[in-house]
Design a protein around this nucleic acid. Structure first.
Lengths: 102, 102
DNA sequence: TGAGAGTATGTCGGATATGACATATACTCC
DNA sequence: GGAGTATATGTCATATCCGACATACTCTCA
């Protein structure tokens, strides 16, 4: 692992060498969950910026408060598809989306 | 629609005012399919660069040749999730993925 | 303390995506 | 023309995701 990455993870409270390796995640799996978390955080941030409640966002998305909560929590039952569609519905551009991921 | 976008679409062979509007796509829906197409193309390109057949890629992904074909065709039955996972399996980084999308 | 607003978590039936298979089409080489 | 290889298309059963509901937790304010 590169130093910059290690530092970034540790800053965010991750114990490098514990979670990822304990769960036995491959590089791809790790990248996948990192992307999902990034999108989750973007969604929450975007919602809060617009001063919406989860219930309000759910109504906009024709979904439910519980699913919005799961989206923002990066729940395993939530697909990247749903996160992407939700962010687009909140007005994010493809360019911003691309940036959020990486 | 902005001029730059219109020009870009027309360059690629799209008849502006036909497909999108005929299918009655909202801006979000359009952005979603554009993203999917971008990922599809990236997948095909990546596979061909590695000189793999669809069947070989399918084996790598523990999927099937027919599904790989559908992925590359941007078939509606294929999710962005699957495309993302496949691209990661082919060694694409999050950064490259983000760039591909936008 | 307790009522109300917002968020989190568990579960479920129905909806959608998945791998697999069969088969079709396209192309090359003989 | 036909055999071989690669890709495309249609269908199906199962797996996974979804919205919805119930309910739990966490604040804030009076």
């Amino acid at each position: 692992m590169k130093q910059s990455k290690r530092a970034k993870l540790e800053t965010k409270g991750w114990k490098v060498g514990s979670a990822y390796e304990f769960l036995d995640l491959t590089a791809e799996e790790a990248a996948y969950v990192e992307m999902k978390i990034a999108l989750s955080e973007k969604l929450k941030q975007r919602r809060q910026t617009k001063r919406m409640t989860q219930a309000e966002l759910a109504r906009l998305l024709r979904s439910s408060q519980s699913r919005v909560a799961k989206m923002e929590a990066g729940d395993p039952s939530v697909s990247i598809d749903l996160l992407v569609k939700s962010l687009l519905a909140l007005g994010l551009s493809k360019k911003e989306l691309g940036r959020s991921i990486s």
